[in-house]
């Protein structure tokens, strides 16, 4: 899995590509925690290149969402592939995260 990060004003954009599963989860958790820099933090996660997510990956995002809530920040996801979107729907994670059509919309949602 590859993780990259950039900044657009006060929004941190994290781009995830590949598979977010148990082997990728520790690195993803570390990188996403490091993205919580602003006060309050604003994080947009571009999942356009993410092809797979498992329960371990969902837990990483859950932990991130909890931290963001505690710091009264905002987080949004964008560009989910249909199979990844289905995981969010079945698991109810779509009730935790705003899910936008693409990364640009996710950035706008957390501004």
């Amino acid at each position: 899995m590859e993780i990259s990060q950039e900044r657009d004003g006060d929004v941190v954009i994290v781009r995830l590509s590949g598979r977010l599963d148990s082997s990728a989860a520790p690195a993803a958790e570390e990188r996403l925690s490091a993205a919580l820099t602003g006060t309050p933090p604003r994080v947009a996660i571009d999942m356009g290149q993410l092809v797979y997510i498992s329960s371990a990956g969902l837990r990483v995002l859950l932990v991130l969402a909890k931290k963001v809530q505690q710091e009264k920040g905002k987080v949004a996801l964008g560009g989910l592939a249909a199979n990844v979107r289905e995981v969010f729907t079945v698991s109810g994670f779509d009730t935790i995260f705003p899910i936008e059509a693409d990364a640009a919309a996710a950035v706008a949602a957390v501004r």
Binding site: D21, S23, I53, S54, S55, V87
Partner: peptide, 15 residues
């Protein structure tokens, strides 16, 4: 939670 198994919508994997 102790990172011994992982799951998705289809299956369970021992990792």
């Amino acid at each position: 939670l102790r990172n011994r198994i992982d799951t998705d919508l289809e299956k369970l994997m021992v990792v």
